[in-house]
């Protein structure tokens, strides 16, 4: 918790630069001030100086408030989610770049009020943008570290001469219902004379063929998630990469939403809220897929992983 508030403070730090420098520079700054430059480097747009400074301050304040709200909502003692990390990074980048923009334009105007040129001072802006990485780093990782890997599920009792495999089709209204409904509407519009709609119908048809059916399989090689009639592999995880297997209630918000989600530290195929299979990979990455009765593939995977390890 303390780390997150420290990160929030770091994200807000650049914001103080604008009021402080305003104190020193206000008397010398031209009004209006050059705020936009054309391709040759000459100023081509100007703003009222106090208004320009106030706008930048307002932006930094909004970014800091957003970060504070996000951090305050994270329960004490719990690891913060991916969204909080992104918010902190964004807040840092926004305040940093606003302050950088201010310093760049103000110092450029002070250097030559008559023919203000930005030139190398753009680096102030870029440096401010990069400031976003600082609070993100200070907040610490959002994904569980290797120490938090769960004990896993009871492995399937598999004899040495036994071969086992699991295969299932993943069904979800999201997968077929939405595109089909969209396709039906587009088809209706196309038939009533909206010719461009035929293109949408074609796109929906292609999507349904490619992704209308998902197959999840587990066998001696590992886990495979394959899409559609053409069998496009979406995810292949070798047994040797799996550290632990877990059965979990999948909350789409915690995995970045519905569909195939890729986040730093994890990826997931989320088709609905509810039970799912979570793989903890060596190196700390996670992969989740929503599936009915995930205990069955989880027990099989555990047994197969043990067998490979033995």
């Amino acid at each position: 918790m303390r780390r997150r508030w420290a990160a929030t403070a770091l994200a807000g730090t650049p914001a103080v630069i604008i009021p402080i420098t305003w104190w020193f520079w206000a008397g010398d700054l031209p009004d209006p001030i050059a705020t936009h430059w054309n391709a040759t480097g000459a100023a081509d747009r100007f703003s009222a100086t106090p208004r320009f400074a106030a706008l930048l301050v307002a932006i930094t304040v909004a970014a800091v408030i957003t970060a504070i709200v996000m951090v305050a909502r994270t329960p004490r003692g719990q690891r913060h989610g991916y969204a909080t990390g992104v918010t902190l990074a964004t807040a840092g980048a926004v305040t940093g770049s606003a302050a950088g923009m201010w310093v760049a334009t103000a110092t450029a105007a002070l250097a030559n009020p008559a023919d203000t040129r930005l030139g190398w001072r753009i680096l102030f802006f870029l440096g401010g943008l990069a400031w976003g990485l600082v609070p993100r780093w200070a907040a610490g990782p959002a994904t569980p570290s290797a120490a938090e890997i769960p004990s896993g599920v009871d492995p399937l009792d598999l004899g040495p001469s036994e071969r086992a495999a699991y295969a299932t089709s993943l069904r979800a209204p999201l997968l077929t219902g939405l595109p089909a409904a969209g396709g039906a509407v587009a088809l209706l519009l196309a038939l009533t004379g909206q010719r461009p709609m035929w293109l949408l119908v074609a796109v929906v048809a292609v999507v349904l063929v490619l992704f209308g059916r998902l197959r999840l399989t587990v066998d001696r090689r590992g886990l495979r998630l394959v899409a559609g009639l053409l069998g496009v592999p979406l995810k292949v995880v070798a047994l040797s990469k799996i550290a632990a297997v877990e059965v979990m209630e999948i909350n789409p918000a915690a995995w970045g939403g519905w569909g195939y989600r890729i986040l730093p530290g994890s990826s997931a195929m989320v088709l609905r809220r509810g039970p799912g299979l979570v793989l903890h990979l060596h190196g700390g990455r996670r992969f989740a897929v929503t599936v009915d009765r995930p205990e069955i593939p989880a027990a099989l995977l555990s047994a197969l992983v043990q067998r490979v390890g033995a």
Binding site: L156, G159, S161, E162, A164, A165, Y166, T168
Partner: peptide
């Protein structure tokens, strides 16, 4: 579903 076969079984 889960399939399991024992290659050593008769």
């Amino acid at each position: 579903m889960l399939f399991r076969v024992d290659v050593a079984a008769t």
